[in-house]
């Protein structure tokens, strides 16, 4: 009795060890790829490995955010900041926000959230420029159901010059209708990312990032 159970367990362990061996590398590759994809989506094209060059920046609250610098050759082309907010409607929201060297938001990606589907979950696309995706009946019958226009996009704007808070609070961004709390939390995360990025070691107060000397003069001309 004991022997047969032992035998089955041994067999199972052997099989699992073999499969684990085979999948260990693909799993870690897939994880790294996921992070890399998220960074690639939010900053201008780069050719370095931002994950290897990432560093932590302390925030005012005493915790820290991870900043991923994106470089092309030796020039810094942008930063991706992994930011978060705990004030979402359903708690924690994780966002990856990308900035170019002029402080403008290039793009963002929501990495993790638990907001209400259909309401708060709209933040995944809400703060990007609207794209109209045609559904099948619209294609077949050749009409378009227009979405209502909002000024909700944060892409291409800088938190330094635009007030990144919801219009209800006097800001310049339209909140997701019926999800003001989620919108506030999301914008808080973006502002936090911006604060961390401006404090990061590669950032200079002129709004441009460290540029080799000769290049800097070129820009002035």
């Amino acid at each position: 009795m004991l022997l047969s159970l032992l035998f089955i367990c041994l067999l199972a362990a052997g099989l699992l060890a073999k499969v684990n061996d085979m999948t260990e590398k693909p799993i870690s590759d897939a994880k790294a790829l996921k992070l890399e994809e998220a960074i690639k989506n939010v900053v201008p094209p780069f050719d370095n490995n931002p994950v290897n060059e990432s560093y932590k920046v302390a925030t005012e609250k005493g915790d820290s955010l991870i900043v991923y610098p994106a470089k092309k050759g030796d020039d810094v082309v942008g930063f991706a900041v992994n930011s978060y907010s705990d004030d979402g409607f359903a708690g924690n929201i994780q966002v990856m926000v990308g900035f170019d060297t002029q402080d403008n938001v290039v793009n963002y990606a929501v990495l993790a959230h638990a907001e209400t589907p259909g309401l708060g979950s709209q933040m995944v696309d809400w703060f990007k420029p609207q794209v109209q995706e045609l559904s099948l009946i619209e294609k077949i019958f050749g009409f378009e159901i227009k979405k209502t226009e909002t000024k909700s996009s944060i892409i291409g704007k800088s938190p330094g010059t635009t007030n990144f808070s919801v219009s209800k609070d006097g800001g310049d961004i339209d909140a997701i209708s019926a999800s003001t709390i989620t919108s506030r939390a999301f914008l808080e995360a973006v502002n936090k990312a911006y604060a961390a990025y401006t404090q990061s070691e590669n950032y200079t107060s002129t709004g441009a990032t460290i540029v080799p000397e000769e290049d800097a003069t070129e820009i002035k001309e």
Partner: peptide
């Protein structure tokens, strides 16, 4: 096995 394979090839 299913879980490991899925994590590796269909993350």
């Amino acid at each position: 096995i299913v879980e490991m394979v899925m994590n590796a090839y269909l993350p």
